[in-house]
Simulated scan of single mutants.
Amino acid sequence: MPTWKEITSQNPEHSKNYAARWDRLEAQGNDIVGEARLIDAMAPRGAKILDAGCGQGRIGGYLQQRGHDVTGVDLDPLLIQQAKQRYPEATWIVGDLAEDTNVEGSFSLGVCAGNVLTFLAPEQRRPALAHLYQLMDSPSRLVVGFGGGRGYSFPAFFEDAQAEGFTVQQRFSSWDLQPFDQHSDFLVAVLSK
């Protein structure tokens, strides 16, 4: 799988098209905040939440509007610019999860949705998980979701997450918490610190 950096360097319009796709889906009446509703249900009001790989802010923006203190980080400056325009009350930072995110503080809950980890090079995944672990309070939870067949097997992800200090608390096959089994083609993992 190509990384996000590779995709956007080969196609400078990719980020703009990605954001436009979500806008179209929303305009057509599709539910584009299912992940955010789950995270909102897991958090007490006013929770400090990290949206890792936040894109144009669809999840973090929803959570900010529900009364949470949200910080979103993404390596794509165009998407961060859109997040800042749409949801100025939240904090939006350009940063690379595998390197220095420029994020300060610690978080009681984190979300990493939208295949974010699969858009990292294989050698960047463990450093990203290590960095996310450092950003989380103790105790806290990080919810990670991504599809199968994207170059990051679920067993490898579990091994990497545990090697960086997380405990795999729950495994689901969808954001509406359908059971996970060996035939699942999507993973939503709740990790705890």
Rank of each mutant, 00 (worst) to 15 (best):
T8A: 02
T91K: 05
S192A: 15
D185T: 10
A36K: 06
P139W: 04
E26S: 11
D185Q: 10
S173I: 01
Q85S: 11
G55W: 00
I93F: 00
P88C: 04
S184E: 14
A128T: 05
K84H: 07
I49Q: 03
P12S: 08
V94A: 05
P77E: 10
S108I: 13
W92Q: 00
A156F: 03
P122R: 09
A130H: 12
R171C: 04
G105S: 14
R37K: 10
D100Q: 11
D76W: 02
F186Y: 12
P12V: 01
D185R: 12
E6C: 09
R86H: 05
I49V: 12
G67L: 11
P44D: 11
A43Y: 06
S9G: 05
V70D: 01
D100G: 08
N17M: 10
A36I: 12
G53Y: 07
G57F: 01
P2G: 07
A47R: 00
D69C: 07
R150K: 15
D31W: 00
R21H: 06
T8E: 15
A189V: 07
Q65M: 11
V190D: 00
L117H: 08
A36M: 05
A27L: 06
M136V: 08
L120S: 06
F166D: 01
M1F: 06
V116G: 11
T118N: 12
H68C: 04
Y87P: 07
A90G: 15
Q124D: 15
T91G: 01
C54E: 09
